[in-house]
Design a protein around this nucleic acid. Structure first.
Lengths: 352, 352
DNA sequence: GTGAAAGCGCTAACAC
DNA sequence: GTGTTAGCGCTTTCAC
């Protein structure tokens, strides 16, 4: 464990200390793939003792270079992580461990640079581009440009991407079918007799309402309402779903309108919960005076009173996409690219 | 960008396509350190065109092996990330980018295996042990055993560890001085005249109340109260700070006691916020009937009403420790290991 | 201004 | 059961 020289010990040093060849050290440390008789326990002990004594640690770069794989996968997500991303990461870690893979995370900055050029830090993408990892799960496919995804896949990176509207192209796409679920939510509110429906938006949705990916939720809700003959009243659309205090304030402003909404859809579950607070503090009952629905099915929604109606993933079981990632990694030749359905659903609880 | 063969193109392929040597390709792609005349624009163009056309991507493993550094740093944290860890990660990313470093995250599973053996997934620690990264910031030093930290540092990994009670040993320790801040909090409540003070605990704190690191908060609060002659009443200590709904239920149970507490300290800000809900739903005013304080200074605390009294980092500026990490990485020889003070503070707001 | 060549630490044929 | 050896893809010294 002690080391006086400046250089870290290598297998060569271990071999010298144990009086064996580097090949033997490698066999003992990594096992050998061919069906050859094992080393004698004595040799093994001697080598392991030398490893211990020198404080030898394997050099990952050298191993990957030789093995032509890194035995590392990566989960890419947008910075404030959500509970479902955590479950996903846990499952990647657990399933990967079975085949000797470790998992790292690549959190990309939360604020996309304004404008159409929502290119994340190139220094972060290096990890995907320069073969740091064998595969990646992109939890939020809108974080990386479609072209870049295609190039990464073409470059040999195994890729599974969560995205609502992206054709597979050398990678698999987990299709969340968010649009269908959001349309169901709107239908549910209309069924309940609501006609004045408000929308608590994320700031980006209002900044770029025409952006197909950034404003997917907003656009889908608006389109569903319009299709039902009850188009969204612009005065009932407010920002603030990003930040708790703003959601609170904006909801109260909405309720003080001369013609307040009778139902409110929040672009986030958090915003919806703050809206519930805001309504209650103003003496309005939920859902009596104001029905409130969130989007995302976070964990908080089922814990509060009234429990939050929302749309999102009903179960956080990602066995299929995660297993698929490792199939891709171990597949001898290129897999084409499938669509893996994992649909969002309408989850009706007490708040509507 | 197209590639028909099974093998990914290498610099050798690029060199062949451009009619130059691999050395030239390398110069163009990485710059060269010595003060030598630059390549001609024509050569440069030809090489870059070949790169583009072949879809060449650098191989990180080969580069690291040769350069003897990975140009990668890592932020280690406990899985449900907190806002301050996100700020830390952002700052690591930003400061690292200046010297060509990329950042990855290493989220360790949230539930430590019961018992003293709180060893995280060995497959996760591989990333630190096997030279995947040049340096790491451990946001929660209790996640990794002190011995392991020392071994990692001794093995050449640059390390900066956030920890409340750990001597530097080949790595720097960011000292949060949590104990002092928690003692201040207790003093603050006693000043306000409270004598029956409850504690909403994380489950681990009650499972292993003697564990110096797992139960630091609980032990410190208990010790401070005892020292003030107002020892914690065991009947006022309840679990539930981990999960929102449980925090809610346990707080209400506490308030229905025959002798309910007049103040409550929650081991987490989230638990404290749920406790505020719970108290209000029972008709109790906060802080009138029940003073409530959190621990951690999360972002939610300042957004709710009443704003939450808490202890934690007053500003999320990690320039000093992050800069220090990169100093360590670039330092020609071993730095000893310093203590970097970044003290928690008592933040008194409306809830107490 | 460009090229030849050595070698980073490891693995896996193959030889004995 | 263990050793020899040829690279993996890249960078860098040195030569021209």
């Amino acid at each position: 464990m002690s080391e006086k020289t400046g250089r870290a010990p290598t297998q060569r040093d271990v071999a010298a200390a144990a009086g064996v060849s580097t090949a033997t050290v490698s066999y003992i440390l990594s096992g050998r793939r061919d069906r050859v008789t094992p080393v004698t326990p004595e040799t093994r002990d001697r080598v392991l003792r030398a490893v211990e004594q020198l404080g030898y640690r394997l050099d990952h770069s050298a191993r990957s270079l030789r093995r032509r794989r890194t035995e590392l996968v990566c989960v890419v997500y947008r910075m404030p992580d959500s509970p479902w991303v955590e479950r996903l990461a846990e499952q990647v870690q657990a399933i990967g461990a079975r085949s000797g893979y470790s998992m790292i995370a690549l959190p990309l900055p939360s604020s996309p640079p304004a404008g159409p050029e929502q290119v994340p830090q190139p220094s972060a993408l290096r990890v995907l581009r320069e073969r740091y990892v064998d595969g990646a799960i992109v939890a939020n496919g809108t974080l990386i440009e479609p072209d870049e995804l295609r190039r990464l896949a073409a470059g040999g990176l195994s890729l599974v991407v969560f995205h609502d509207a992206l054709p597979p192209a050398g990678f698999d796409v987990v299709d969340l079918a968010q649009r269908a679920a959001l349309t169901d939510l709107v239908a549910h509110l209309l069924d309940r007799g609501h006609t004045r429906i408000g929308y608590l938006a994320h700031d980006v949705e209002l900044a770029a309402p025409d952006d197909e990916v950034q404003s997917l939720k907003y656009r889908t809700v608006a389109a569903a309402l319009a299709a039902a003959g009850a188009p969204l009243d612009p005065r009932l659309v407010v920002p603030g779903a990003d930040v708790r205090e703003r959601a609170y304030v904006e909801t109260q402003r909405l309720l003080r309108n001369e013609r307040p909404p009778t139902a409110l859809i929040s672009s986030s579950d958090r915003g919806a919960i703050d809206a519930i607070w805001a309504a209650r503090d103003l003496g309005a009952s939920v859902p009596g005076d104001l029905a409130i629905a969130g989007i995302g099915n976070g964990t908080e929604g089922s814990a509060i009173r009234p429990a939050l109606t929302t749309v999102g993933l009903p179960r956080l079981d990602f066995t299929v996409p995660v297993t698929r990632l490792f199939e891709r990694i171990t597949a001898p030749d290129e897999l084409p690219g499938d669509r893996i359905p994992q649909p969002w659903q309408l989850i009706v609880r007490e708040s509507t």
